[in-house]
Amino acid sequence: NQASVVANQLIPIQTALTLVMMRSEVVTPVGIPAEDIPRLVSMQVNRAVPLGTTLMPDMVKGYA
């Protein structure tokens, strides 16, 4: 099973992502693949992302 990127904390809207905000976890449905974590650093979320939420491509500006 492929690991996805999951929020390690509440990430407020417009926040630039850092490594400490994300973790990898095998979840359903599958979100952004964990191997993309380095690419996500400094990208902004376009909505508030609660703790434990799987990051989906449409939540990160410039990802999809």
Rank of each mutant, 00 (worst) to 15 (best):
P57N: 05
T54P: 06
V60P: 00
I32C: 05
Q14D: 15
G62E: 09
K61S: 14
T28M: 09
P57S: 12
V20W: 12
A48Y: 13
V27A: 06
A7M: 04
S4R: 02
V30G: 08
R47L: 10
V30C: 11
L40F: 01
A7W: 03
R23N: 05
A64V: 10
K61R: 13
V49R: 00
V6P: 01
S24P: 13
T18F: 04
D36V: 08
K61L: 13
V26P: 06
A7R: 01
L40Y: 01
V49D: 02
K61F: 11
T15P: 04
T54H: 02
I13K: 11
Q2K: 07
P33C: 10
T15N: 04
M56V: 08
K61C: 15
V27Q: 01
R47V: 13
R39T: 09
E35W: 08
I32T: 02
R47I: 11
T53H: 09
R23F: 04
S24G: 11
N46P: 02
P50R: 12
Q2P: 15
Q14A: 15
V45N: 01
N8K: 08
V20D: 14
R23M: 05
T53G: 12
V6K: 03
Y63F: 12
L51Q: 14
E25S: 10
N8C: 07
S4C: 04
M43K: 09
I13A: 15
M56H: 07
G52N: 12
L51Y: 13
T15D: 04
I13F: 13
E25A: 12
N46A: 12
A16E: 10
T18N: 05
G31Q: 02
I13D: 15
L17A: 02
T54N: 03
M43H: 11
M56E: 06
R23Y: 05
K61W: 08
S4L: 03
D36E: 12
L51H: 10
M22I: 10
S42T: 15
I13H: 12
S4N: 01
V20M: 15
T28K: 06
Q14G: 12
I13E: 14
L19M: 13
M22H: 00
R47Q: 15
A64C: 15
V60L: 09
V60A: 03
N1S: 15
A48N: 15
P12E: 10
E35I: 12
T28D: 15
V5A: 11
I32N: 01
D58H: 12
D36I: 07
V49K: 00
P29M: 04
V26E: 15
Q9E: 11
L19C: 12
R39F: 10
D36P: 00
S24I: 08
M43N: 04
E35H: 12
